[in-house]
Design a protein around this nucleic acid. Sequence first.
DNA 1: TCGAGTTGTCTTCCATGGAAGACAAGTTAG
DNA 2: CTAACTTGTCTTCCATGGAAGACAACTCGA
Lengths: 175, 175
Amino acid sequence: MDDDRIADIVGQWGRERPDLDPTPLLIIGRIQQLAAVLDVALRPPFAAADLGNGDFDVLAALRREGEPYTLTAGQLSQRMLVTTGAVTKRVDRLIARGLVSRSVSAADARGRVVGLTSAGVALTDRLIEEHLANEAAILRGLTDSDRRTLERLLAAMNRTLASRGFGPEGESQAR
Amino acid sequence: MDDDRIADIVGQWGRERPDLDPTPLLIIGRIQQLAAVLDVALRPPFAAADLGNGDFDVLAALRREGEPYTLTAGQLSQRMLVTTGAVTKRVDRLIARGLVSRSVSAADARGRVVGLTSAGVALTDRLIEEHLANEAAILRGLTDSDRRTLERLLAAMNRTLASRGFGPEGESQAR
DNA sequence: TCGAGTTGTCTTCCATGGAAGACAAGTTAG
DNA sequence: CTAACTTGTCTTCCATGGAAGACAACTCGA
């Protein structure tokens, strides 16, 4: 039952470097492991639609923005916390699939406005349901009270990191 | 003060798809975001040593194994939860840096035994101290009680995922 | 209004890691 | 002992994303 990878690692360090405190790994290591496992666990719906996780990020960002489901490349870059170069590539792939369109901004000829096509809206609306259902299923093992506690503690960690200068200004995703 | 990306996303979904419950994102989205931010926040010591995060994974796995600081390529693959192909590449890079060595296993001529050089041990011992200190600093915003709670809840999530068939048999890291 | 910045996006190049196949070395049934 | 299978690692090819530079378009002060 105790195939807890992280606990094992902590045990090993405790033996090899008893002068150090390896217990931060119980939290930080687990968060990292969870993120990786979650990516795999939540992937199937996107894989079935032949979409990369990152590509769905684009669709979701546009969809939740509300009508007319448009954002500039720069805005997408901010919301998804990836470089504009990555945005270009994600959008290129989605255009090839007919899920989004790109046009020159009316207000600023440098800007590119990316918008969901009707096919894009339809697909996103379908996928987000599955996606949230999967997330809910994963959290089913926690009580309501546990969930609230977990939210609070994770938010607290986020704030700590932000205050140390590592706010979400260059990382992450959320889908 | 409320530049909470995830909370904003939840709010947007709540407006656009009031039929769905977006609150799982408050946990899962935050975990994903945290993992990404943590990677950046914890990177400096490795970057200073001109090491990829993944490369340090190899050094740490060998070091915490204890003397004689050796593992086969396959064992490294299991501990780090990456493919053997990735192991080959990581080890190649570390060999070029003189931090590990690779030799044919005495017991099984197919096997390759990877071992820390003395330079590798020295560097790893130095980096792990910095690394754990950084992790401890990040957790400084949480009380002891909060930490225990967080450990428990994260471990619970891990178990839930494992029971759904997504145990760490194909993902993650822990450094 | 002109020229020096600045900005928004794309392009190019690079690094990392997965998937799948190649292969030598081990194992095992007969 | 041998043929067939399995295993451990490496190789090749591919996909994704970052970094840095290219560039056109915008802004602003003089």
